[in-house]
Computed example of a mutant assay.
Amino acid sequence: MKRVLMYTTQVCPYCVMAKRLLGSKGVAIEEVRVDQEPGLREEMMRITQRRTVPQIFIGETHVGGFEDLQALERAGKLDPLLQD
């Protein structure tokens, strides 16, 4: 299983849904809480060119947010992306 990195905040419902979807697949998530350290949000925005959370990386691939993750799941492309 590839490494999954997710930029999140505590009160983000989309973050919760993304964690739930990935958790249902047995994926361990490395969570970076951008609400706890402003520099981390700036880092996320520099890397992704997006301001919103979650921002999800599977391996080296920037998936995007929850809706992007959900679209991959619906298209049957999430499981293959998660595999090593």
Rank of each mutant, 00 (worst) to 15 (best):
K19C: 06
L69A: 11
P38E: 15
G76Q: 09
S24C: 11
R74E: 15
T61P: 00
V11M: 10
I29G: 00
V4M: 01
D68T: 13
V63S: 09
L81K: 05
R3H: 11
L81I: 10
H62V: 07
E60F: 02
Y14C: 08
K77S: 09
P13H: 11
S24M: 12
L72Q: 13
E37S: 11
D68H: 10
Q55F: 01
F57L: 10
E43Y: 10
D68E: 14
D68F: 02
E31A: 05
K19S: 09
Y14A: 09
D79H: 02
E43T: 15
L40G: 10
Q10D: 15
S24K: 10
V63R: 04
M1P: 11
R46F: 07
H62M: 12
T48C: 03
E43M: 10
P13L: 13
A75H: 05
M1S: 13
Q70M: 05
E43Q: 15
H62D: 12
Q70R: 12
G23Y: 04
L40A: 13
R46I: 11
R51G: 04
M44F: 04
I58W: 05
M6I: 15
V11Y: 08
D35R: 02
I29K: 00
M44K: 05
D68V: 11
I47D: 08
V34M: 06
L22P: 04
L69D: 12
D68M: 03
E60A: 15
E37P: 01
G23Q: 04
V11A: 13
M17P: 01
Q10N: 12
Y7N: 10
R51F: 02
A28T: 14
T48Q: 03
R3F: 02
R41K: 09
A75F: 04
E31S: 03
Q55W: 01
L5M: 03
C12H: 02
K19M: 09
A28E: 13
G26V: 07
L78I: 08
V4P: 01
M17W: 06
E43A: 15
V32F: 01
T8K: 01
R33I: 09
G23S: 08
Q70A: 15
P13G: 14
V34F: 03
E73N: 11
A75I: 07
K2C: 07
I29Y: 00
M44Y: 03
F57M: 08
S24P: 01
F66T: 15
P80E: 12
R51V: 14
A28R: 01
R41L: 14
M44G: 09
V27L: 01
R74A: 15
H62S: 07
T61W: 00
S24E: 15
I56P: 02
T8V: 15
V63I: 14
M1N: 08
P38R: 06
R50I: 09
Q49F: 00
R3P: 02
V34H: 05
H62K: 04
G39S: 12
L22W: 01
V63M: 06
I47M: 07
G59Y: 08
V32K: 01
V16M: 03
Y14D: 14
K19Q: 09
L5Y: 00
L72G: 14
A75S: 15
V53E: 03
V11F: 08
R20M: 14
V34W: 02
K25W: 06
L5R: 04
